[in-house]
């Protein structure tokens, strides 16, 4: 059955890479908000859980023309799987219905209690945004670290996949508040993700892409806006901005001569 594309809301994110300083606050805000496990060794990056992850890139030029930049990468919350189906590739492959796209919000969920740990979704995700729990969450007895855990998010057990949820519990919180105040709609500022809120450079903007009033809808009109691996046609809802050609070029695999620099800037 063909599902209707585009619900009432389509939450998305715009990350301005010119403003991003690579400080990593978004990663920590995310881990702290979502009870992400921290193990003593976090250097094996294939097994380290980072819903929001910074990728470091360089322009490859020799000293002193070297430049470093960063890609903060949350879950892209893709609208499609690249083959025209209105669900992301991770959802298409999930055998346990543990991950779903909510067409009313555009948020791709992850339900740990349903996940059977087959890691198919992890293989299907082109962005490496999904993480498998090789161990139970690390809170050894006697340390007392579990005291900072937030009750809004359940800590994960061994054998399930997890990923960025656009801080879905914050949407719940905002909705509950609105309901309590007898409102049917929530305002732009009422729902934002922990990373966007924490960014000291204000590089991350979050909002409803369907709402022309929201800042994100205006930002994605910029000629400098782009998405990661855009030509896979997965329709990610995370956009990036960069005025630097070499940074934009890193966002996809281009054949020689294929990349088109921005020449016309309007607005």
């Amino acid at each position: 059955m063909e599902q209707q594309k585009g619900g009432i809301y389509r939450y998305g994110m715009v990350i301005d890479l010119d403003k991003c300083t690579g400080c990593g606050t978004c990663m920590i805000a995310c881990a702290a908000e979502n009870n992400v496990s921290v193990r003593p060794d976090q250097t094996d990056k294939e097994r380290t859980i980072t819903w929001m992850k910074l990728y470091k890139i360089t322009n490859g030029k020799e000293f002193p023309h070297t430049e470093v930049s960063y890609f903060p990468r949350p879950c892209m919350h893709c609208d499609e799987d690249g083959r025209g189906h209105h669900q992301p590739s991770c959802v298409s492959v999930c055998v346990a219905t543990a991950t779903k796209i909510d067409h009313n919000t555009g948020i791709v969920s992850q339900i740990y209690t349903r996940c059977i740990g087959c890691r198919y979704c992890q293989a299907a995700c082109p962005y490496g945004a999904r993480y498998f729990n090789w161990w139970d969450t690390y809170f050894p007895k006697g340390k007392g670290l579990e005291r900072y855990l937030s009750p809004e998010i359940s800590p994960r057990m061994r054998g399930v996949v997890e990923k960025c949820t656009f801080c879905h519990h914050r949407l719940m919180r905002a909705k509950t508040q609105a309901y309590a105040e007898d409102r049917t709609d929530i305002e732009e500022h009422e729902y934002t993700t922990a990373c966007a809120e924490a960014c000291p450079a204000q590089a991350i903007t979050f909002g409803d892409l369907n709402n022309p009033e929201h800042k994100v809808s205006q930002l994605i009109k910029s000629p400098y806006a782009f998405r990661l691996l855009e030509r896979l046609n997965t329709k990610p809802k995370v956009y990036y901005l960069s005025t630097k050609d070499w940074v934009r070029k890193m966002a996809d695999n281009y054949l020689p001569g294929e990349f088109k620099p921005v020449t016309k800037v309007t607005g």
């Binding site: 209690t113 139970d136 809170f139 007895k141 579990e146 359940s154 800590p155 054998g159």
Partner: peptide
């Protein structure tokens, strides 16, 4: 498996 005692349940 989700209720193993060493996986904390934040009150």
């Amino acid at each position: 498996t989700q209720n193993w005692p060493w996986v904390p349940v934040p009150p």
